[in-house]
Computed example of a mutant assay.
Amino acid sequence: MQTLEENILNVTELEPRQKHPTIFLRFDELEPGESLTIHNDHDPKPLYYQLLGERGNCFNWEYLEQGPEWWKVRISKRRNDEGEETLGEIATKDLRKAQIFKKYGLDFCCGGKKTVKEACAEKGLDVTRIEQELQAADQNLATSRPLPYNDWSIDFLADYIVNTHHSYVVKTLPDLRTYAAKVARVHGSRHPELLAIHTLVEEINAELTSHMIKEEKVLFPYIKELVAESKSAASPAPSPFTTVQQPINMMEMEHEAVGHNLEQIRELSRNYTLPEDACASYSLLYRLLEEFEDDLHTHVHLENNILFPKALKLEKELKY
C-alpha cells in the first residue's frame, strides 16, 4: 500500500489541461483505504464537486492546509464496506457535533437519515466547509466527554427521555402558550406573524401532549418489556401491536409534524429576531421558543436515532 509521503501530487507542476485528468487517473489507481494528497496554489474545491459528480460518493476529502500559498488536500478512497455516515449517526456518536448542524439549519433528528452531502445539496450549502468543521470538531472536542447516550441500555434511555425531556416539555409548554397568546394580543396588529406563531404553539401543545402520553403509557413500557425478556428465559408477553415498528412509525410522523411547526416559527420570527418595539414578554417568548426548539432537537434525536432503532433490533432478535 502506498504511504502518504509517497503518494503526493504537486498539481502546480502540471499543464492546466492535464491537472484534473491526472488527478482522476491517480485517484482511480488507489486501492480502497488508500489516499492521494494534492498540493495546489489555490483552493481545489471545484475538483471536489467534479469528483463527486463523476465518481460518486466514494471518497473522503480532508484539508490539510488552506493557503495563503499552498492548499493541501488528502483524498481517500473509501473501503467497500465503509458507507458514509448520516447526520443522525454522526450525532449519535457525538451529540456535540449537532451544534454544527444547527448552525447551518441541518435537521439531524427528523431528517437524520440523510448524509451530510445529501442534506447540504438540498439546502444549497457548501458541503466542503461543513465537512471541514466536522473534522476540526474531532480535535476541538477531544478534551471533553459527551453523555454516552448510545452506550445506555434502552430501558434506561427511555426513563431518561421521560425524566429529562418530557418533564421539560410539560414544564415549559404552559409558559409558551401564555406568552404566545399575550404577545399576539398586544403586538399582533403591528406584527401579524405573532398570530400565526400563537396558532403554531397551540398545535405543538396539542400534538406533544397526546404524543408523550402514548409514549409513556404504551410504547416505552413495551420497550422495557423487551429488555426484561432479553434478560430472562420467560416467554414473550403478548404484544399490543404486531411489531414495534407500527407505533414507532406514528411517533416519527408526529415528531416530524412538531419539527415542521417549529421550522415555521423560526421562519416567521426571522430566526427569533426581535423588532425595535419588542417588550420584555416579547423577548421572553422568543427566548423560550429557541430553548424549546433546542431541547426538542435532542429529544427527538435520542428517540429517532438511538432508542427506536435499538428497540426494533431487540424485538427482531427476540421474536423473529
Rank of each mutant, 00 (worst) to 15 (best):
A98E: 06
I154Y: 05
L87T: 02
P309C: 10
P221M: 10
I204M: 11
E203T: 14
Y282E: 01
L95K: 05
H297C: 15
R17M: 12
V258M: 03
Q245T: 15
T92F: 06
E203R: 11
Q99N: 14
P146M: 00
S76P: 05
Y272H: 09
L314I: 02
N57M: 10
W71H: 04
T164D: 11
D294I: 10
H297N: 06
N249D: 15
K97Q: 13
L4Q: 14
E216S: 09
E256S: 15
R177F: 13
K214S: 01
A184V: 01
N305K: 03
T37E: 07
I38Q: 00
G56F: 01
E15S: 15
G259T: 07
L288T: 03
K182V: 07
E276N: 11
L36Q: 01
P148T: 01
P247V: 01
L219Q: 06
L318I: 04
V127G: 00
R287M: 12
D277P: 03
P174E: 09
R17K: 15
P21C: 05
L106V: 04
E15Y: 12
L134I: 05
Q99W: 11
H198K: 09
L87C: 04
F101A: 03
P16R: 04
G112M: 04
W71F: 11
L262C: 06
E5V: 12
H260Q: 15
H20A: 14
I248W: 00
E15L: 12
L318H: 08
A278Q: 02
L134M: 01
D155M: 00
L36T: 01
M251E: 06
L87H: 05
S281I: 06
A142E: 10
S283R: 13
K231P: 14
P275S: 03
L296S: 00
T92C: 08
T298S: 09
M251H: 08
T143F: 13
E193G: 05
L318G: 05
S269W: 04
G53T: 01
E203N: 15
H187Q: 09
K214C: 08
I23T: 08
G53M: 07
A311F: 02
Y63H: 03
T128S: 10
V300T: 14
P192Q: 07
K45D: 00
C279Y: 06
K313R: 13
D277T: 09
G105K: 12
S35G: 06
K113C: 09
G111N: 03
L296I: 12
T178H: 15
I265A: 04
Y168P: 08
Q139W: 10
H166K: 07
S281P: 02
Q18V: 08
K123H: 05
V162M: 10
Q245V: 13
N80V: 12
L176C: 03
N40Q: 10
L289T: 08
A280T: 13
S281F: 06
L147W: 13
F308L: 07
G124W: 00
K117A: 14
Q99G: 15
S281R: 08
A91Y: 05
G188A: 03
I23E: 03
E202D: 15
W70A: 12
H166R: 08
L268G: 04
R185T: 15
E202K: 11
V73R: 00
L52G: 02
K123C: 06
V162Q: 05
D159E: 14
N40F: 02
